[in-house]
Design a protein around this nucleic acid. Structure first.
Length: 99
DNA sequence: GCCATGGCTAGTA
DNA sequence: GCCATGGCTAGTA
């Protein structure tokens, strides 16, 4: 079932540690079968307490409708934001998580 | 048809 | 900015 894939996406997002971030593509790669686009959709439809704010676009930016809340939450976890986006360069680690 | 994406290009500073 | 892509959803036949 497709719900299976959605569940794996949610599990991958849930596993991102506090203070760390990943890109939609990272999460998709982690799950294996998911496209980055699907990750965005699943998160947008999710109503649970998933740490969706730790998932960013490939360049560290955010879709406008979530930007304010996302940045507020990330700052609260100590993630630095410059020029309206999280700086991802040189922070990528082998597992795909970024810190 | 719609997008909480991503990559690549042109055009400005 | 623009276009390609993937996956889901609404709305018609």
């Amino acid at each position: 079932m497709d719900e299976d894939r959605h569940e794996r996406i949610r599990a991958a997002v849930a596993a991102i540690p506090e203070g760390c971030v990943a890109t939609y593509g990272d999460v998709a790669a982690e799950v294996g079968e998911a496209s980055a686009r699907l990750v965005g959709r699943v998160l947008s439809e999710d109503g649970s307490d998933l740490p969706w704010h730790r998932v960013l676009r490939a360049n560290g930016s955010s879709a406008p409708q979530i930007l304010d809340e996302q940045h507020a939450r990330l700052r609260a976890e100590g993630v630095e934001i410059r020029d309206g986006r999280v700086v991802l360069a040189n922070h990528r680690v082998a597992s795909g998580w970024i810190f």
